[in-house]
Simulated scan of single mutants.
Amino acid sequence: MNLETFGRTIVLAFGLTVSLFKGANAETLKIGVIAPLTGGGAPWGMAAAEAPKILAAEINAKGGLDVGGKKYQIEVIAYDDQYKAADSVAAYNRLLNQDGVKYMIVQTSTAALALKQNVEDDKVLALTAAATSKAFDANTKYMFRIVSPPSDYISALIPWVKEHYKGARIAVLNPNDETGWDQKQISEKVFKKSGYEILTNDLYERSQKDFQPIFTKIIDMKPDVIDLGSTPPSTAGLMIRQARELGYKGLFLKTGGAGPKEIVAGAGSEAAAGMISMLYIDPTNDGYRRIAAAYKKSVGQEPNEMLGPLYDGVNVLLQAIQKAGDVRDTAKVAAAFAQALPMKSVQGDMLTLGGKATIGVDQQVMSVTYVGEIKNGQPVVVGKVK
């Protein structure tokens, strides 16, 4: 099943929900997802839809999730928000009011910002992979981030790249939205502190397909490195291919939103060779390979690596529900995150609860960030930062 076909089968919105209803002899825990299942962000959205399904299948095969002595079979519902705030809100309202959902995966920064206040007002427990720090403040109680964002790992990633790869003249590109604005501001400070000369720090529209005018200008500046920031993977592949066609021979860097397989698919292995990016997973890790195989069996394609942290995030949520002992009380479940963590990730790394230093509240699963280089069309881990 390809991405387009899968997207059409899912309907409109995307979110993670938990609603309860009596079956014949069992209760069901519904998990919903709000994410882009179509368009440039589809690889991330597909990972968000499939990760809870994989975990649910594992738990259901063992009889269900045990909460306070009751067994719950887990069912996942996913909706496509097309990376649009209005569609995210529509999906949220459908999950909350029609499906009775009280637990949601709200995948993107766009969705998290659109739903931030709704989540708190309705006491819906939401997981997000949002990069923007604006999704959180000191009063946030019900939204949890499932990956370390650029504000946490980028201060270690950029100096690591500067130490291990040549070049000090850099051009930076990001999408013109909340994700890109945050990435632009955060990375600019660290690039300068690490000794890079920033030639340009531009924004582009997500709908853009022709990047030749941008790269013609950038190549004339003679950069050693081009950072594609939080650009979606498929778009990054297109950008790399167009830049190479114009004669750029320097290093490509991607400091946010990893997706090397999609990048290679768009750029070609020769054009993408040598690109450095942050990675959420080690593709050779046995734990990750197990869930990646389950994804491929279901969808028919290799997953985006966001599958790893999304699987971990849902696992933390379910363990917090077990610790709380009550699926209906989201306040108890939110408080129980501190009891569910620390825990090991699917790859064996230790996950902890943090975030206060950067977002003002401990509502974030702190994870390891890998550094990858594309070699022979494949991402190879060359470092690790935290």
Rank of each mutant, 00 (worst) to 15 (best):
T200Q: 10
L341M: 09
G354C: 06
Y79K: 11
E205R: 06
A320W: 05
M143L: 08
S194F: 08
T38A: 11
G167V: 01
I105W: 10
D282R: 07
I158C: 00
N25G: 13
K166S: 05
D122V: 01
K375E: 13
A49Q: 12
K249A: 11
A294T: 11
Q322S: 10
I276E: 00
L199N: 08
L228W: 06
G354M: 00
S133Y: 08
N304Q: 04
F21Y: 14
L351F: 05
A324D: 07
R169T: 14
I74H: 10
L65N: 01
A338M: 07
R290Y: 14
G40S: 11
R289T: 00
V316Q: 00
V33Y: 00
A336I: 05
A340L: 06
V380L: 02
V346S: 03
D329Q: 06
E75W: 04
F144K: 01
M350S: 13
M343P: 11
T369K: 02
A35H: 07
L12R: 09
I219C: 10
Y196Q: 09
A168W: 12
E50T: 12
G15I: 07
A42K: 04
P159Q: 06
A35T: 12
V264H: 00
L29Y: 12
D122F: 06
A49Y: 07
K84Y: 04
P175C: 01
V316F: 08
G40T: 10
D87V: 15
P309L: 07
W181V: 13
A111Y: 00
D349P: 02
Y204D: 06
T9N: 12
D224Y: 04
G354H: 01
A90V: 09
G180M: 08
V11K: 15
I31N: 07
E270H: 02
Y83H: 13
G237I: 00
A49C: 08
T352G: 05
I218W: 08
T231D: 14
I186Q: 01
M350R: 15
G7I: 03
V190F: 11
Q73Y: 15
F215W: 04
T17R: 15
I158T: 09
W44Q: 13
M366R: 12
